[in-house]
Amino acid sequence: MTTPASSPTAARVVDAVKVYGTGDTAVRALDGVSVGFPAGRFTAIMGPSGSGKSTLMHCAAGLDTLTSGSAHIGGTELGTLDDRRLTQLRRDRVGFVFQGFNLVPTLTVAENIRLPLDLAGRTGDPDWLDTLIDIVGLRDRLHHRPTELSGGQQQRVAVARAFAGRPDVVFADEPTGNLDSRSGEEVLGLLGRAVRQTARTVVMVTHDPVAAAHADEVVFLADGRLVDRMASPTADHILDRMKAFEKAQVTS
């Protein structure tokens, strides 16, 4: 259940194990997971509550460390980096979109989009930023502040910010969780357009089959293990697969 060796991966984990706690209270959130996320593709991670999907994303993105196994961004193994170099890698090669928009309220839309570049002391590529602004449809909002935007518009700013530094991979954690269905569809659509039009990579954690159906592929976790993959997913097929996993958990 790994990505074929011929397919380049933007991020991957190998034999990933994550244990929280010790002794009788230890929880094995990841149990020997090996999975690669193909470059230039949109992948969704799904699974029942407690399956380890958020833990997988956090460890793959370098936000958390594995108990054993390895995590890689491109050809870089995260476990070989000290804190300074890991922070630099996350800043320069990884983008993040969270359920909460995490915008700076005192900055304009344009300033929020540029924030990762400014923090890194980089000028960025004006043409790239211009393309992003068109993809997310915010050209007429660049001088507004977050409080002047709808929730969907704020999340669009967060998406543009995540891509601003041309990262190897953007990790999105329940990016539509705080949005109504229409705004959520708009954000998912623009994530897909960003992948297709900029050849970037998106890895999204979601519990929503409709959201996951926007991805090129869905990987499924259950009890901390990778149990299935689905190419060209549809919401109905995803829902059927999820029901099967939940039924298996009840009867096991």
Results as ranks from 00 to 15, higher is better:
6 S>F: 08
7 S>N: 12
8 P>Y: 09
9 T>E: 15
10 A>N: 08
11 A>V: 10
13 V>S: 13
16 A>M: 05
16 A>E: 04
19 V>F: 05
20 Y>T: 04
23 G>E: 05
24 D>H: 05
30 L>D: 07
32 G>L: 02
33 V>P: 02
33 V>I: 08
36 G>N: 01
38 P>D: 05
41 R>H: 05
45 I>P: 04
46 M>K: 05
52 G>F: 12
58 H>N: 15
61 A>L: 07
63 L>F: 15
63 L>D: 13
67 T>Y: 11
68 S>Y: 11
68 S>M: 13
69 G>S: 07
72 H>C: 02
81 L>F: 01
81 L>V: 01
81 L>H: 01
84 R>P: 00
84 R>L: 03
85 R>G: 00
87 T>E: 11
91 R>W: 03
93 R>A: 13
95 G>C: 14
96 F>C: 06
100 G>H: 12
102 N>T: 02
106 T>N: 04
107 L>C: 01
111 E>D: 10
113 I>N: 01
113 I>M: 06
121 G>T: 09
122 R>G: 08
122 R>K: 15
125 D>F: 06
126 P>E: 12
128 W>H: 15
131 T>W: 02
133 I>G: 01
133 I>P: 00
142 L>P: 07
143 H>P: 00
143 H>M: 09
149 L>R: 01
149 L>W: 01
149 L>D: 00
152 G>E: 06
152 G>F: 06
156 R>P: 00
158 A>E: 02
160 A>N: 00
160 A>H: 03
164 A>G: 12
164 A>M: 13
167 P>M: 14
168 D>F: 10
169 V>F: 12
171 F>Y: 14
174 E>W: 07
176 T>G: 12
183 S>I: 04
183 S>E: 05
188 L>S: 08
189 G>T: 08
190 L>P: 01
191 L>R: 09
194 A>K: 04
197 Q>R: 15
198 T>C: 13
201 T>S: 04
204 M>I: 08
207 H>R: 13
207 H>S: 13
208 D>A: 05
210 V>W: 04
212 A>T: 09
216 D>T: 10
217 E>I: 04
227 V>C: 03
229 R>W: 08
230 M>L: 14
233 P>L: 09
236 D>C: 07
238 I>N: 07
241 R>C: 07
243 K>N: 14
247 K>I: 10
251 T>Q: 14
